[in-house]
């Protein structure tokens, strides 16, 4: 009856299961640093991902070269063909124009925020291969001054925070990730709440909103001063639908992210920041000494 105990596979499988069950809770996102094994695996993938990205860009360039050469032949052969090829070329140029525009926006944004933020631009080199987590990999690591928990943004708004740092690459946990909760508030009414994500559905929800607060669709949601990882006032998105839960005297709202988290290609990592100082009304003394 207990013959299976003699099989080597039984013991191998049993040890693997026990080890996994012990390791899973120990390796949550709360830990300070990743293990050497994780760094090794990430280190193996990062140059390959950068290399493939580079190759894709090179092939794009090569494609444009052939398109240009075909243009010359087409001018002689057929005017209609020439027009079509010009259209193709125009598309390629538009792509460069959009890229230049995006980079200019990044640069402008960086210049505007030099006073209170230390920003470094980075390129997205890979996205999460797994549907359970919502992450991206960027081509900046600790050799560029990037550290765990640094905020990552685009000129349009908040993207997420650094969850793992390698030498020349880092993993960014997006705000849509289940564990990427952000302390937030509604900009117009200053109602606080917590924005949480859901990696599988790629949606954002704003929870713990006061039941009697005035919240309407289209209100802007920004990071709060009390947010643990993010500077104050970074745009997260806009309020979508609002639902009330009278039982717990609270409201929940869906938040439409300001950044299309499936599309962006460049980001800015905030290496350091200072929140603007609170504006006190200094003309009116707080405690006036009673006159004798």
């Amino acid at each position: 009856m207990f013959d299976f105990l003699k099989g080597k596979y039984f013991w191998i499988i049993l040890v693997m299961i026990i080890v996994s069950v012990m390791i899973i809770p120990m390796t949550s996102t709360d830990r300070q640093d990743n293990t050497a094994f994780e760094k090794m695996v990430q280190g193996l993938y990062a140059p390959l991902q950068r290399g493939v990205n580079f190759l894709a860009e090179y092939l794009d360039d090569l494609g444009s070269y052939f398109v240009n050469k075909q243009d010359l032949v087409a001018i002689i052969q057929n005017i209609e063909k020439e027009r079509q090829l010009y259209l193709l070329e125009n598309q390629a140029l538009k792509e460069y124009q959009y890229e230049a525009q995006r980079l200019k926006e990044l640069l402008d944004f960086k210049d505007q925020n030099l006073a209170n933020m230390d920003l470094i631009p980075a390129q997205v080199i890979a996205r999460s291969p797994n549907n359970w987590y919502s992450t991206i990999n960027i081509n900046r690591g600790y050799s560029h001054g990037v550290a765990k928990d640094m905020a990552v943004i685009t000129p349009l708004g908040l993207v997420g925070r650094v969850s793992f740092v390698g030498k020349d690459s880092a993993q960014v946990m997006l705000i849509t990730d289940r564990e990427g909760a952000v302390g937030a508030l509604i900009q117009e009414t200053r109602v606080p709440g917590i924005v949480v994500g859901d990696a599988k559905s790629k949606q954002l929800y704003m929870n713990h909103l006061q039941f009697y607060s005035e919240i309407k669709s289209g209100d802007q949601v920004v990071t709060s001063r009390f947010s643990e990882y993010f500077p104050q006032g970074i745009i997260i998105g806009k309020i979508g639908e609002v639902t009330s839960d009278p039982e717990i005297l609270s409201k929940t709202a869906t938040v439409i992210p300001a950044v299309d988290l499936d599309q962006f290609e460049e980001v800015l990592v905030i290496r350091g920041y200072t929140n603007p100082a609170p504006q006190w009304n200094l003309e009116q003394p707080i405690d006036e000494e009673p006159q004798p």
């Binding site: 499988i13 299961i17 996994s20 293990t35 291969p129």
Partner: peptide
């Protein structure tokens, strides 16, 4: 049985790459 061992090791590689809750993919895929 060989499937479990291979599935576990492949899942572990994915866990190490993702760097979170190491063992979930390993156990599941195993």
């Amino acid at each position: 049985r060989p499937g479990f061992v291979y599935g576990f090791l492949c899942g572990l590689l994915e866990d190490l790459y993702l760097g979170r809750f190491i063992g979930t993919n390993a156990l599941s895929k195993g």
